[in-house]
């Protein structure tokens, strides 16, 4: 994948985290879950797209499922709870 793709993705993630820091208050374990989740999602994106280039379509799907889904769950737990708190507050 091109450097520019990762540059844009990195910028989006940075903006997302900047928003979280400014508007929500995360506990330490929510930070851990959110960061772990985002890393897993990024890893799944890299493996998925690279596997497509390798013509390994089965592997690509598994990477989305095996890395992306747990990543989404972790990120969701880490970010949804503080979002809900922020909404209530």
């Amino acid at each position: 994948m091109s450097v520019i793709f990762w540059l844009i993705l990195g910028a989006l993630v940075a903006v997302g985290f900047a928003y979280v820091v400014k508007n929500w208050k995360l506990t330490w374990y929510e930070w851990v879950l959110a960061i772990l989740g985002v890393l897993l999602i990024l890893w799944s994106v890299q493996n998925y797209s690279a596997s497509q280039l390798e013509h390994e379509f089965r592997a690509a799907t598994y990477f989305l499922v095996m890395l992306g889904v747990p990543g989404l769950i972790l990120a969701a737990i880490g970010l949804v709870l503080p979002a809900m708190r922020a909404k209530k507050g």
Partner: peptide, 12 residues
């Protein structure tokens, strides 16, 4: 700058 952008993928 390019290397910085690639850091996300290269860091692991």
């Amino acid at each position: 700058l390019g290397k910085l952008g690639a850091a996300a993928s290269l860091a692991p």
